[in-house]
Design a protein around this nucleic acid. Structure first.
Lengths: 151, 151
DNA sequence: GTAATTTCTAAACCTAACTTTAGGTCAAGG
DNA sequence: CCTTGACCTAAAGTTAGGTTTAGAAATTAC
C-alpha cells in the first residue's frame, strides 16, 4: 500500500466528481493514460486529478473531447506538468473563450439589426447564412458555430 | 398550379436551405404544421419560410428544438404572423442571448483568476463547479459529487 | 479464509438532431 | 400512357458524450 502505487479509478472519481464510467470513457478518447497494476487495474497519478479538472473546465467552455485532447498534447509528456504548464494551456483556453464571446456578440448585433427591419426570413438577413450552415457534413447533431446548448 | 396550392416540401427546402428530411423532422417535433393535399403530400404556406428561418436562427443561439417550440407558441395561431409578431419573439431571443454572453464572460473572469493562481484543480477554484456541470448529456441518474478531501 | 467491494471488459442503451434506406405512391412532362 | 422525379412512411443509422448491464476477476475488510 505504498504511496507509489497510485490512485485506483474509484478514488480518482471521488477526487474529481466524475463517474468511474466517464473516466474510462476519457481514456478511450485518449484524454488520460493510466498504467495498470499487477492485477490489471488502472492506477493514476495525483497529477491526473488536475488533468481531469482541466477536461471538465474546458468542457464548460464548449470544447469537444477531441479538441481537449489536442490542447492536452501541449503538456510535456516526459514529466509531471508544473503549475506553469497548466497556466500556459489555460491561456489557450482563454483565447478560444474570447473568440466564442466575440461570435455571440456579433450574432447579437445582427439580431438587433433584424429586429429593426423585421425581416428574419430573407437571404439578405445576415442571420440567415446558408454558407455557414452548409459546412456541416454527414449525420448526427450539429451545433452550428460550434456552440453546444447550455454552455 | 394555382398560387393557393402552397409550397411542396422540396420547394420549401430550397427556399430555406434545410434538408427535406429536416423539415419532416421538425414537423414531428411540433415546430411546423403543414396541411396535406388530395394525394397526401405536405403543402406549406409562404409564411412557413419565415417560421423555419426563425428556427434556424434560434438554433444558432443554442436553443433546443423543444425550447424553440415553446417560443413559437407565442405566435398567433389564428392568422399569419406579422413582422411585428416576429419582432416580438425575436426580442425574447435577444434576452436569452444576452444571458449566454453574461455567463461566458463570468466564466472568462474566473479563468483569469485561475490563470493567476495556477490552481486549476482545487474545489476552491470557481471553475471547478459541480453544480454547473450537473446538467450533462446521457441517460440515467447522474453521479452526485461526494466530498473531495484535500487535493 | 471468507464476504463484501471494487474493478475489469464488452456491448447495449441513452438523448439530440438529424440522415439514410427501403419499399411504395403521386405528379408532371412528352 | 409511360417514365422520371418528387414525395410518402417507418425504421434504422449516426455523432457526442456518456451510462448501464452482465459476468468475471482482483482487492479489501473482517
Amino acid at each position: 500500500m505504498a504511496v507509489s502505487e497510485g490512485l485506483a479509478i474509484g478514488a480518482l472519481a471521488r477526487r474529481t466528481g466524475l463517474a468511474v464510467s466517464a473516466i474510462r470513457y476519457y481514456e478511450a478518447q485518449g484524454l488520460i493514460s493510466p498504467w495498470r497494476n499487477a492485477g490489471g487495474q488502472r492506477r493514476y497519478q495525483r497529477a491526473d486529478i488536475r488533468r481531469l479538472s482541466f477536461v471538465m473546465i474546458a468542457q464548460q467552455f464548449g470544447l469537444t473531447l477531441p479538441e481537449i485532447r489536442e490542447v492536452l498534447l501541449e503538456l510535456p509528456g516526459n514529466r509531471t506538468p508544473t503549475p506553469q504548464d497548466w497556466k500556459n494551456i489555460s491561456e489557450g483556453l482563454r483565447t478560444r473563450l474570447d473568440q466564442r464571446i466575440d461570435t455571440l456578440m456579433r450574432l447579437r448585433d445582427n439580431l438587433d439589426g433584424c429586429i429593426g427591419c423585421g425581416c428574419l426570413s430573407l437571404p439578405k438577413c445576415k442571420l440567415y447564412n446558408p454558407d455557414d450552415r452548409a459546412k456541416s457534413h454527414g449525420s448526427g447533431p450539429r451545433y452550428l458555430m460550434g456552440d453546444a446548448p447550455e454552455a
